[in-house]
Amino acid sequence: MAIKVLVAKPGLDGHDRGAKVVARALRDAGFEVIYTGIRLTPEQIAEAALQDDVQVVALSLLSGAHNTLFPKVVELLKAKGLNDVLVLGGGVIPDADIPGLKAAGIKEVFTPGTPTTAIVDCIKANVK
C-alpha cells in the first residue's frame, strides 16, 4: 500500500524548490506525498500529520532554525500520540548540528548534493 509522506517547510524561509524536487521524486517512487507548503508552524505540521495519518514527515529548512524547529515537530508528534512516524530533515544544515538533530529524533538529515534516491531508499528501509 502506498507510503504516505508529509513534506513541509517549518519556519520563515520561502525557498521551496528543494522541497518540491523531493516531493516530485517521492511521487515518482510511488509514494503519496502530502505537500503542505511554506512558512508553517510545527503545530500545523504535526496536526496535518495526524489528520492524514502519514508514516513519514519530511522537513525542509534553509533558514538556520533547524535546531529549534525540527525537534519541536518531533515533540509535538509524540504529544499527539504519533510515536512511530519517521521524521527526516533536509536543507543547508551544518554537519556539526546533525548528531544533535538525530539525538532529538530526526532519523536522517540530508544536505545539499544528496541524490533523491538516497531519500527514497531511506524511507523504504525504515517504513514497513
Binding site: A2, R27, E32, Y35
Partner: peptide
C-alpha cells in the same frame, strides 16, 4: 494518483493549513 508510478502529490492541504488550528 499517477497512472505511471502509483504515487501522488496531494496539494489541496496547502490552501487549508490555517484549518489545523
Amino acid at each position: 494518483t499517477s497512472p505511471y508510478s502509483g504515487g501522488a502529490i496531494l496539494g489541496d492541504r496547502i490552501r487549508m493549513m490555517d484549518l489545523t488550528a
